[in-house]
């Protein structure tokens, strides 16, 4: 069963996976080329700044990979209103678990390619004193971030329209609360508070923060 589901999800996501795979290798190699390639041609400070700029791409790639794999896991079933899935002779939670696991398995592919790209980039660059490369740590963090993004979008995609409406309603409520405060000439702190909870440990998006730099001190 798992093999069949994995096959279908791979088939649905393969084009997007290919693009992500290319980016997974290109971003680390590109970041090293951007600071001069084999020998760093800019000052160390500028090199680190360039690395920081490129680091945004890792975060975007992780979020994108999670989003694409989650949507592609459910798109076909959603088109058929889940009739086929619900008529299969497996417990429903089992079916959802199979889909979830298949997407996770596919996520390993770009994660491995991030690692490969980072290893290649680390191998081709000669570092000045005080700097080090972190290919393994970068790939692991990427995998964790992509996993969180995938799980989040998977949960939203697998739920009912009512669930999505609830989530949107909560978000709208938070925004409305800040607007009310602003109209009352009070500091609008609700969004800031909520966002800080999400992005500080142990918030759900904390793994996306930090220095995503292949080359760092």
């Amino acid at each position: 069963m798992f093999r069949s589901i994995l096959y279908t999800q791979w088939k649905w996501a393969r084009v997007a996976l290919l693009v992500i795979a290319v980016a997974a290798v290109a971003v680390p190699v590109g970041s090293v080329r951007a600071i001069g390639g084999v020998v760093i041609s800019t000052s160390v400070g500028d090199a680190l700044n360039t690395m920081r700029v490129w680091s945004v791409l890792y975060v975007l790639l992780a979020a994108l990979a999670g989003l694409i794999l989650a949507i592609s896991a459910w798109a076909a079933d959603q088109r058929g209103h889940h009739v086929y899935a619900l008529s299969l002779p497996v417990p429903r939670w089992h079916y959802v678990l199979l889909r979830f696991a298949a997407g996770l398995a596919l996520l390993l592919v770009p994660a491995l390619l991030v690692w490969l790209g980072a290893l290649i980039a680390s191998a081709i660059v000669v570092l000045p004193a005080g700097l080090a490369t972190y290919p393994g740590a970068l790939a692991l963090r990427w995998l964790l971030a992509a996993f969180v993004a995938y799980a989040l979008f998977f949960a939203i995609s697998s739920g009912t329209a009512r669930t999505a409406g609830l989530v949107l309603g909560v978000i709208a409520g938070i925004v409305a609360a800040d607007l009310m405060l602003a109209l009352m000439d009070q500091p609008a702190v609700v969004i800031e508070f909520v966002v800080s909870k999400f992005f500080e440990w142990p918030g759900v998006f904390e793994v996306f923060t930090g220095r995503w730099m292949l080359i760092d001190v």
Binding site: A132, L138, L144, V148, R211
Partner: peptide, 12 residues
């Protein structure tokens, strides 16, 4: 640096 500490990994 980018290395996720155990807390970050567990939270994810």
């Amino acid at each position: 640096p980018v290395a996720a500490n155990p807390g970050t990994a567990w939270a994810a």
